[in-house]
């Protein structure tokens, strides 16, 4: 086992009924990494996570964890923890009993059990809630219980299904910090599934972007945010002006267009709204929509090459609805896309 493949998925194929959900997936995860599986619903990220947990039968391929093949190891013997999106706390048990559940099954009893449960509760700040029932807790508290319940088992990998999606904005920030802290203190390998790019960028060491059961791109948050390699990823992380390239020319609804400077060789180019230059440039457009966002202004332009989204600092002079203007799509600022879907 090399350090780079503490958890490794090898040619993993998963199916729902007869339809393939995930075909031939390869992924290597380092020990202690915090990985985000990012993608829209139906991209196979949750299915992949369930397969790692053993809740999903593997059609073909292998799952290896800490040097051994766990493909056929039943879910209850895998040492993989999972924090469910709905938390899945046992409604008939107290917070204390929820956290003690797995430890008791391991045969832990008496003082050892009590100490372990208490420290688990303490680590998520719920020592005073030990005797409550899950229904008496807020969503954030329930999630902490679910986290403690998994963490006291000292799993080799902790999986989290949309860990922040059920929380309000303030709790979300709090929980983010909490997850990072737990990960840092315990060094547990963590994989979380999310459809929210902001969440993945903020939390993960590495992001795996998935689409239709396949990995679209793997990289650091900076890579994903600044250097998307495909039109899909570019779109997903907020590049709103995306065009294919053909023989060095931009292929638009208005035909093949020459850019103001020589583009890199790529399958396509993508610009975020704030990469579009307004006021100078070879292209003409009409302002169709405008919105003020505090520090900046956003414009929706109607142009011969199709709709363009632009964003400029609010200190710049504003254009009125219907105003005619010129703009540029600078090739040197664009993200070159290796693949165009």
């Amino acid at each position: 086992m090399s350090d780079a493949s503490y958890l490794s998925l090898q040619k993993l194929t998963l199916t729902y009924g007869d339809s393939p959900a995930v075909p031939d997936l390869d992924l290597d995860i380092r020990k202690g990494e915090l990985i985000a599986l990012l993608g829209p619903s139906g991209c196979g990220k949750t299915t992949t996570m369930r397969a790692i947990a053993g809740l999903m039968p593997v059609k073909s391929g292998r799952v290896r964890l800490d040097g051994s093949d766990i493909t056929r190891v039943p879910a209850n013997k895998r040492a993989v923890g999972l924090v469910f999106q709905s938390y899945a706390l046992f409604p008939h048990l107290s917070v204390y009993e929820n956290v003690a559940f797995g430890l008791k099954l391991k045969g832990m009893r008496g003082q050892e059990l009590d100490a372990k449960v208490q420290s688990g509760l303490k680590s998520v700040g719920l020592s005073n809630f030990a005797n409550r029932r899950p229904a008496e807790l807020s969503g954030g508290q329930q999630q902490r219980v679910a986290l403690a319940r998994s963490m006291v088992m000292e799993p080799k990998v902790l999986l989290l299904d949309e860990p922040l999606s059920n929380l309000d904005a303030r709790l979300r920030l709090e929980m983010r910090t909490e997850l990072q802290r737990v990960q840092k203190e315990t060094g547990v390998t963590m994989i979380f599934v999310t459809h929210d790019q902001a969440e993945a960028l903020a939390l993960a060491d590495r992001i795996v972007v998935m689409k239709s059961g396949k990995i679209e791109q793997i990289g650091s948050p900076e890579d994903i945010y600044n250097r998307p390699t495909s039109s899909f990823v570019a779109d997903f992380v907020g590049f709103e002006n995306i065009f294919p390239l053909e023989n060095g020319k931009l292929k638009t609804s208005g035909g093949l267009i020459n850019l103001s400077s020589q583009p890199p060789s790529a399958a396509g180019l993508a610009w975020r709204p704030r990469m579009v230059t307004l006021g100078i440039g070879p292209f003409r457009g009409t302002v169709r929509g405008t919105s003020f966002a505090g520090d900046s202004r956003e414009y929706l332009l109607d142009t011969p090459i199709g709709p363009i989204k632009a964003e400029v600092e609010a200190s710049q002079p504003a254009y009125a609805l219907g105003a005619e203007l010129v703009f540029d799509l600078p090739a040197e600022k664009a993200a070159p896309l290796a693949r165009f879907a």
Partner: peptide, 15 residues
């Protein structure tokens, strides 16, 4: 009754 509590129990070591 949510069915994921059964999966949670299995992941905590229960058959």
């Amino acid at each position: 009754l949510r069915s994921d509590i059964e999966e949670a129990a299995v992941l905590l070591g229960s058959s």
